[in-house]
Nucleic acid binder design. Structure first.
Lengths: 210, 210
DNA sequence: CCATAATTTGATCAGATGGTCAAGAATGAG
DNA sequence: CTCATTCTTGACCATCTGATCAAATTATGG
């Protein structure tokens, strides 16, 4: 059999897999699974279609590889919410981390958005498994903070949904935001303004009522 | 020529156009323009593909008709924000209206989400034209409220983006929310809980600081 | 009932799409 | 250098997709 004794990937393989996944992210994040073609990915990755299928055995394989590659990064920040920290400061840090992610990797955000919009055919298991588990845990943390009177009483799940919504909005709806603001591109100043506004409203809204 | 003297549509035409647009909304809202097929629409509308093209001359025509049909409804609530009303109450009413829309017509929300994600090829003009115009106007209203010390100082544009984000999130990311909450469907109680949480945080966050 | 217009669809087409295959080109360890 | 392995692609295929057309069927008003 051709099982490689050395599990090390050749430089060519590493590079081409990277090129393919980058091109695939670009297209899948805009057009979803069905709306993206192998020809399109091949064109953007500057290689022939059969070569694509030499590295990944099907379109679905490419899609799942792209999803997996960004899933961990995307879900990581929530883990950082520390029960022993100062509640308002912890939430502030979480929001900042999510906004930074939206600014740094908007395509990853849009990839998940299209996947969810299409009914999450590939990540349904992650949503109801690992994601639900960690959200449940963090919801308990937030509930404890509320019980201790350290933040205002809000449903923890909907608070998390709100944070997801406002932070990812800038990546997912970038085109709309650019159009309304009359800008060619969203730069640092826009993300700074967004972060400031979000902090103003959310953090003040969460302060324990006197 | 075949110009119909009476501009009235036959009952059959009215009904079939309705069936087509309904089926098209269902598919376009999930798979976007590229990911949706005429065969798929024909199947869901329970009629032959050539009959589809008897009522609309191309796939693009169907897409634009579906978009136009929901665009007005979707943008309407913002118009209602009344400069002469009580600021907090006006914003509360706007949020309630947007949540109601997300609950009543989630597919319309997802249709716009996919359109925007794909770069807004069909509605770019609306975004930078009519939409920008009305947002600019309402931003002036909000700025006035802030100047009068009736709400906390926030960038008006980002405030509007935040409201869009948190309200549409429940339609666009419904699958994810269901998975995390462990529910089969999102019913009234979830939308009530969502609305309550959003009001708690946003409205409190907007109260003028003492 | 008749004639005209409106509606419906099977057959068909050109081009796109996901995927295969065999053969050629580049690479690299010994 | 040498040859086995890795990499690359042109040609090809079956199926799908948007669209057309002519022929058949069904309303509708007089």
């Amino acid at each position: 059999m051709s099982t490689p004794r050395s599990p090390r990937k050749s430089r060519i393989k590493t590079m081409n897999e990277g090129l393919i996944l980058e091109a695939a992210l670009d297209l899948f994040s805009r057009f979803g699974f069905r709306g993206t073609t192998l020809d399109g990915i091949a064109l953007r990755a500057e290689m022939s279609k059969p070569n694509l299928l030499y590295y990944f055995k099907s379109k679905e394989d490419i899609y799942e590889a792209v999803l997996e590659r960004t899933l961990a990064e995307w879900l990581a920040p929530l883990t950082g919410l520390d029960e022993d920290g100062e509640p308002i400061e912890e939430i502030r840090k979480y929001i900042a981390a999510k906004i930074a992610l939206s600014e740094r990797n908007p395509k990853a955000s849009r990839l998940f958005a299209t996947e969810i919009l299409q009914g999450a055919p590939s990540v349904a298991g992650v949503l109801s498994g690992p994601l639900k588990k960690i959200v449940d845990r963090k919801a308990r943390t937030i509930r404890k903070w509320i019980a201790d009177g350290r933040i205002a009483p809000v449903d923890p799940y909907h608070l998390i949904f709100m944070i997801w919504a406002v932070t990812q909005h800038y990546a997912d709806f970038e085109v709309q935001i650019r159009a309304v603001l009359g800008e060619r591109a969203l730069g640092r100043k826009h993300f700074d303004a967004a972060e400031k506004s979000i902090m103003t409203v959310l953090i003040e809204g969460l302060r324990p009522r006197g």
